[in-house]
C-alpha cells in the first residue's frame, strides 16, 4: 500500500521540481488533447446542430450513429487510423504514423461523436418555441442560431468537456498511432502504462496524478468561466 503514498509524493516532487521529462509529456498531452477537442468541436458543433434542428431523411439514424460513436472503443478507432496512416495505406504518403499529428487525428475522431451527440442533446433540450420566438422578434436565422447557442451554453460546454475528458484519458489509440516514443509521442497515459510494465508503480501513479490535476485544471477553468457568464448578466441587470 506504500505505493499509493509514494506515488502521490512522487507526483508532487515531479511537479515541484519541474522535471523536464514529465513537463514535456504533460505539455504534449495538453497540446494533443486540446487540439483534438477543438477539431472535434469544430466538426461536432455544426453536425450536432444539424441533427438537432433540421429535419432530413436518415436524421434519427445519424443521431443513433453519433450515440453509438460515444461508446466507440478508442482502440478500435486507433486501429482504423493506424491502417489509414500506414505507409501502404491511403494516407501513407504523408508519413504521419507515430507523430503527434496522428494522435490528434485519432483523438479527434474519438471525440467528434461524443461532441456531436451531446450538442444534439443540448440543443434539443431548448424550448422548441425558442426559434419561433426569435423569428417573431425579427432575428435572422444566424442571429437566432447564435442566441440558441448562448441559451444552451452550459450543456454545450459539457459536450466540450466530455470530449476533452474522453481523449485526455484514453490510452489505446494514443499507444497504437503514437507508438509511445520518448520525447515525441509519449503522453501521460502511455507513460503510465510503460511505467507500470516496468514495475515503477509509484512513477505510474505519479503520472496518473498529474493527469488528474491537468484534467481538473482545464475543467475548473471552463466551469468557472461558464458559471460566471451564466450568473453575471443577472447580477448586472
Amino acid at each position: 500500500m506504500d505505493v499509493l503514498g509514494e506515488g502521490i509524493a512522487d507526483a508532487l516532487r515531479l511537479l515541484v521540481t519541474g522535471d523536464s521529462g514529465t513537463c514535456q509529456i504533460t505539455l504534449l498531452t495538453l497540446r494533443v488533447s486540446a487540439t483534438a477537442t477543438l477539431v472535434a468541436l469544430a466538426a461536432g458543433l455544426p453536425l450536432g446542430a444539424l441533427v438537432a434542428l433540421r429535419r432530413f431523411p436518415g436524421r434519427r439514424i445519424a443521431l443513433a450513429a453519433a450515440n453509438t460513436g460515444m461508446g466507440m472503443p478508442p482502440v478500435v478507432m486507433g486501429l482504423f487510423v493506424t491502417v489509414l496512416l500506414w505507409r501502404s495505406g491511403p494516407l501513407g504518403a504523408f508519413g504521419l504514423l507515430y507523430t503527434p499529428t496522428a494522435m490528434i487525428i485519432a483523438q479527434a475522431a474519438i471525440a467528434t461523436p461524443v461532441v456531436t451527440a451531446l450538442v444534439a442533446a443540448a440543443l434539443q433540450q431548448v424550448d422548441p418555441d425558442f426559434g419561433t420566438q426569435m423569428a417573431a422578434l425579427g432575428a435572422t436565422r444566424l442571429r437566432a442560431f447564435g442566441a440558441l447557442l448562448v441559451e444552451a451554453r452550459l450543456p454545450l460546454l459539457a459536450a466540450g468537456m466530455a470530449g476533452f475528458g474522453a481523449v485526455v484519458s484514453e490510452v489505446g489509440a494514443a499507444m497504437m498511432v503514437g507508438g509511445n516514443i520518448e520525447g515525441q509521442t509519449r503522453v501521460l497515459t502511455t507513460a503510465a502504462v510503460l511505467a507500470t510494465s516496468r514495475g515503477e508503480f509509484a512513477l505510474a501513479i505519479a503520472f496518473g496524478m498529474v493527469l488528474l490535476g491537468l484534467a481538473f485544471a482545464v475543467n475548473l477553468g471552463l466551469t468557472l468561466a461558464a458559471q460566471r457568464r451564466s450568473t453575471q448578466p443577472r447580477a448586472a441587470r
Binding site: 519541474g18 523536464s20 513537463c23 514535456q24 504533460t26 505539455l27 504534449l28 495538453l30 497540446r31 508519413g95 507523430t99 503527434p100 520525447g183 515525441q184 485544471a217 482545464v218 475548473l220 477553468g221 471552463l222 468557472l224 468561466a225 460566471r228
Partner: peptide, 28 residues
C-alpha cells in the same frame, strides 16, 4: 476572467518547464 487565469496557469507550467512545449520533431 477565469479563462485568463486558466491560460496563465498553463503558461506558468510551460514556463516552469523551461523550454517551449514543442517536442523537438525529428526532421523527416
Amino acid at each position: 476572467h477565469p479563462l485568463l487565469l486558466l491560460l496563465a496557469t498553463l503558461g506558468l507550467v510551460a514556463a516552469a518547464c523551461g523550454s517551449p512545449g514543442q517536442a523537438a520533431g525529428p526532421g523527416d
